[in-house]
Amino acid sequence: MMRLYVEGIGLLGPGLDGWSASRDVLAGTTPYVAAPTSLRASDMLPAAERRRAGVPIKLALAVGQEAFLQAGRDTKTTSTVFTSSGGDNDNVHAINGILATAPREVSPTRFHNSVHNAAAGYWCIAAGTHEPSTSLCAYDASFAAGLLESATQVTVDDATVVLIAYDHPYPEPLNAVRPIAAAFGMALILTPRKTEKSLATIEVDIVSGNGQETAMRDAGLEALRSGVPAARGLPLLAALARGEAAQLCIAYLDDNHLDIRIAPC
């Protein structure tokens, strides 16, 4: 079992415009109303990077920034774990289109944004950090993989880690074969020890066998959770929003799952 502490939270999704603005919705005291994800380029970025930032960069930086503001922590001294099922899916679509059409000259900006750790690169520029950074993908288990990696780093390296999960839809025709319901991102700042800013304790275990995944109580939020790999972490945010102890199951790869226990500090 790995035990860590949540110190900051970031959220951006359809009808979820920030953690602070969404707490009551996630706690179930205010109805969820879906609306397009409010994407904006981060003011943390220099102008040249800001104008090259695609949807995933906007998601990742928005949720990261919100989490750090809440925690009051220095971005320069915090390790990062990024996780996303697909990375920049708009960019994949655009490059495929360019490669399918003569003279197949790929835009340097699109090439620059095509690596899976592009969000990590933009974050490191924006945050001015040289701390270790990991970028993962694990299909529908991308959030679970990111949480497992973060928990491992917090435990083994005694490090404070920000976990940033994000996903957004492919344009057609890829959307038909890999539908992702919406643009969604979430961030958690995780520490090895309790601090005066700690919001909750999280205990994480990897367990073999398929568990019964924890669903969202609201049908719209459940559609988001099941429709976006990065949003598989929504039940964790809902438990944090309710401020109650909870036990959750999030599916992991190869018929394993994460058993997660949350308790407010």
Binding site: A47, A48, R52, E105, S107, P108, T109, H112
Partner: peptide, 17 residues
Amino acid sequence: LGLDSIDILELSLAISK
């Protein structure tokens, strides 16, 4: 204008097209 090397490459491609 504050352009950098990636911008110049991008602009060269746009001019070529």
